[in-house]
Amino acid sequence: MHSIKKILLRLIIVFLFVLILESGLRFIYEPNEDYSQYRKIELEENKGEIEMVFCGTSRTMKDYNPQIFDKKLNTNSFNLGTGQQPISITYYYLKEIIEKNPIEVVFLEVSPTTLCKDSDRANDTPAKLSVYDRLFNWKTKIISFFDIFPVSEYEEAILYSTNIESLFDFEFIKSNVNSKLSNRYEDGLKGVDTKSYKGKGHVSGRSVYKGAEIGSKYIEKKSWEGKRIQKKNVKFLNKIIQMCLREGIEINLVTVPVNPKLQAELSGLDEMNNYYLDIASHYSIDYYNFYNYRKKDNVFLIEYFSDFIHMNEKGTEIFSNYLIDIYLKSKCGEELEKFFVL
C-alpha cells in the first residue's frame, strides 16, 4: 500500500512536470504569426455561426475563397482545407465543426489521391498533426488517435510538442514571445500581413506557374489507380457522407481544377469519374468533377495556377465564382450533365 502511494505520488509529479514543460515549450516555440494560428482564432470567433464549409487538402485551402461565397450566397462559410490532410482526419475535423456550428452545406474534395496512401511524404505525421493538435477536444483526441496514426507514428504523435528541432533559435524565440505577449497576430488577422492568409481559412498567393517540367514519378503519383485505394480511406469517405446526411447537411463531392499541363499527362481519370459518380448516385448527392468541366479549357487557363495543382489568387476568384454559378443553377433543377462530361 505504502509503495503504491509512493508510486502514485511520483507519477503525479512526473505528469505535472511534463504538462508544465510542454506548456512552456509551446508558449515559447509554437509560431504565433502563422496562418494555422489565425485560422484557429477565426474559427473560434465564428463558432456557432458557420453554415458552409470546404473540406480537403491544400488544394481546397487555396482554391475556395470564402469571402466570395459569403457575398454571393449570403452565408457564413469557412475553408477547412490544410496541407496533405488525410481523409481520416477530415472526418474527425468535420465532426467537431458540425457539433459546434449550424452547418448546412459541405463541399468535400475528392481527387485521384484522396483514397490512396495518406500523403506523398514517407512520414505524414506533421500534416496530420496540423489538424489533430489544433482543434480537438480531449474526448475526440483520444477516440481518433488510433484511427489516424499507425503504430509506427505513435511516439512522434505523442511527443512532438516537446521535441523542438532548433531549441537555440534565439531570434525566433524573442520575436515569438514578444508577439504572444503583445497579441500582434491581430495585425495578421486583419490582413496587414496579406502575403498569403486571406481570412477564414483561405490561403492564396500571386505567383504564376512558369512552365516547369513535370516529372514522370509525379504524374504517376497524381494519377488515379484503383489498386492503390485503401479500404480505410473508403470507410472514412462513407462515414463523412453518412454523417452529413444523418445531420441533414447537404454534401457535395468536388474535384477541383488542376493545371492543364498536368491534366494532359494524368491517367485513370475516367475510372475516377465513374468511381465517384457511383458513390454520389448511391447517396443521391452531387459530384462536381472539374477535370471534366466542359468549358475548362477556356476558363481555367494555365496562368491561373501557381504550380501543378494549386490555383493562385486570380484563379481562386474565377473558380469560386464558377462553382457558385453551377451550384445555384443545379439547385434550380439544371442537370449536371450540362456542365460536366459524365
Binding site: V14, F17, V18, L21, L25, R26, Y29, E30, P31, D34, S36, Q37, S58, T82, G83, Q84, Q85, A122, N123, T125, P126, A127, K128, L129, S130, D133, S152, E153, E155, E156, L159, Y160, S161, T162, N163, I164, E165, L167
Partner: peptide, 24 residues
Amino acid sequence: MIASILLFGVFGTDAVGGFEYAQY
C-alpha cells in the same frame, strides 16, 4: 533525465520535431 529525453531525443527515423505542422 525525462526532460532531456523529451527535448533532445530522436523518435522515429523520419521524425520531424516540434511545430513544423504549423506550415500546413
